[in-house]
Design a protein around this nucleic acid. Structure first.
Length: 415
RNA sequence: GGCAAGUUACCCAAGUGGCCAAAGGGAUCUGACUGUAAAUCAGCCGUCUUAGACUUCACAGGUUCGAAUCCUGUACUUGCCA
């Protein structure tokens, strides 16, 4: 199992590799990964962690999904600037959302059934004095200052608050708590969390005299240097209300040739032979994008289910197909529009307004500009007149398809 | 608590009384090319029904015909001293 996750490129940093290999190939262990509620939904960066938990569960181990009810109230130090604190109500709501999202990827049946935990459960009852006496004594300030996340901030203009400085202690406490109550001996997380991961292993070593382990997964990066997990500057979320299955599928379909094999390893459960075959396909017939299609299908199915994935594929086929939208059946067309960012409007609405309503552009000025640049189409017909209305374009199905640029689509449902 | 420096549009960063909606770089976006690629080249890049107008340069006042630029106060950040 260790060699499997190494091959998939999931290990950037870890505690002793030989011990981990032995541990993971032996009898079932308990491991955990934490997710802080910094937004109403998890995103693709978190998906790496979720799927790692699932992989390890499939290998017979017992995963704990931790949601950061307390750590989410504090905020881990970002390298650039101090976080703005969210209200307790907000965090509590997000905790519930994340709990539900993570749960969907794990199995709660069988001998290695997963569990969900919330670190607020053991942090909230702790008094400040007990915290300082029982936990604080194990932490040396010198060590804490040397963590990258902290030193980066100390060397920046932003500085760091005592609140965020303390974050690593809270996360270390989580690991100790889970070691004591659940026998948890492994924590996984992103390599940017390495300082926090080792905070836990060090604490357990000092408090219990036991060596436990940590695995830090690499930050996923794109070959062209852009940030992974962003679509038009926005994060790609796991919540279908925040990123539609259609947009989710399109995101993966647009993966660069240079990245697609690495993505298949990290984000799918396809086996080694299949991934290697797809690697051949990329090398010999890149224009067919077979690997991208496999990737998009697999990941979208994992997150949104196969039925939603097929709908997304059908919608894309209809909209990107031969361009003759009139030939499509009403049911297919309406289903496609529902997959897109859409809006309902009267028949005399201006195209500019509809571009704004469908979020294809963020302002009327931008919509105007897009038309002036020749980047706006309705039903695949280029729009030249900035004052045009939608009425001549309404299809029999009572819908119209807006397009900005080559592949940003929006749907209009006529009242 | 004292002293000093700083707070400019998505990010970095110029700008020290009118020529500033604000240089430059990056990101995003659009066009050409293409595989719904990449690379490259070009354009756009505060808001508003173009022209023209309106709101911006931490916040609140003030000086001035006119302020991102000067003055006063407030908030926040950083450094040094205590």
């Amino acid at each position: 199992m260790w060699d499997e996750i190494v091959w998939r490129g999931l290990v950037q940093l870890s505690t002793d590799a030989d011990e981990l290999r032995t541990l993971l190939s032996g009898s079932p262990i308990t491991l955990y990964c934490g997710f802080d509620p910094t937004a109403p939904s998890l995103h693709l960066g978190n998906l790496v962690q979720i799927l790692l938990l699932r992989r390890l569960q499939l290998a017979g181990h017992r995963p704990l999904g931790l949601v950061g009810g307390s750590t989410g109230l504090i905020g881990d130090p970002r390298p650039t600037a101090e976080r703005v604190l969210n209200t307790k109500d907000t965090v509590a709501t997000w905790v519930q959302y994340l709990h539900d999202q993570v749960s969907r990827f794990l199995s709660f049946d069988g001998p290695n059934a997963a569990s969900m935990v919330n670190n607020l459960d053991w942090t909230a009852p702790l008094s400040a004095v007990d915290f300082l006496r029982d936990i604080g004594k194990y932490f040396r300030v010198g060590t804490m200052l040397k963590k990258d996340a902290v030193s980066a901030r100390l060397n920046s203009d932003a500085g760091i608050s005592y609140t965020e400085f303390s974050y690593q202690i809270l996360q270390g406490m989580d690991f100790l708590e889970l070691y004591r109550t659940q026998g948890c001996v492994l924590q996984t997380g992103g390599s940017d969390q390495w300082g926090n991961l080792t905070s836990g292993t060090d604490l357990i070593h000092k408090a219990e005299g036991v060596r436990v382990h940590a695995i830090g997964t690499p930050l996923i990066t794109n070959a062209d240097g852009t940030k992974f997990g962003k679509s038009e500057g926005n994060a790609v979320w796991l919540d279908p209300a925040m990123t539609s299955p259609y947009a989710f599928y399109q995101f993966w379909l647009n993966t660069l040739d240079d990245d697609v094999i690495a993505r298949l390893k990290v984000f799918t459960f396809l086996d080694r032979a299949e991934i290697e075959r797809l690697g051949e396909a990329v090398a010999t017939e890149p224009f067919r994008r077979e690997a991208q299609r496999a990737l998009a299908f697999e990941v979208t199915s994992l997150v949104h289910g196969e039925a939603a994935t097929r709908s997304a594929i059908d919608a894309a086929a209809a909209l990107f197909g031969n361009g003759d939208l009139h030939a499509l059946e009403t049911a297919v067309l309406v289903a496609a529009v529902r997959e897109l960012p859409n809006t309902t409007a009267p028949v005399d609405a201006t195209i500019i307004q509809l571009l704004v309503d469908t979020t294809l552009t963020s302002s009327m000025g931008e919509a105007r500009r897009a038309i002036a640049q020749g980047g706006v189409y309705v039903n695949n017909v280029k729009i030249d007149d900035p004052d045009a209305t939608i009425s001549p374009f309404v299809l029999d199905a009572g819908v119209a398809i807006l397009r900005r640029g080559k592949k940003t689509l929006g749907g209009v449902l006529i009242e």
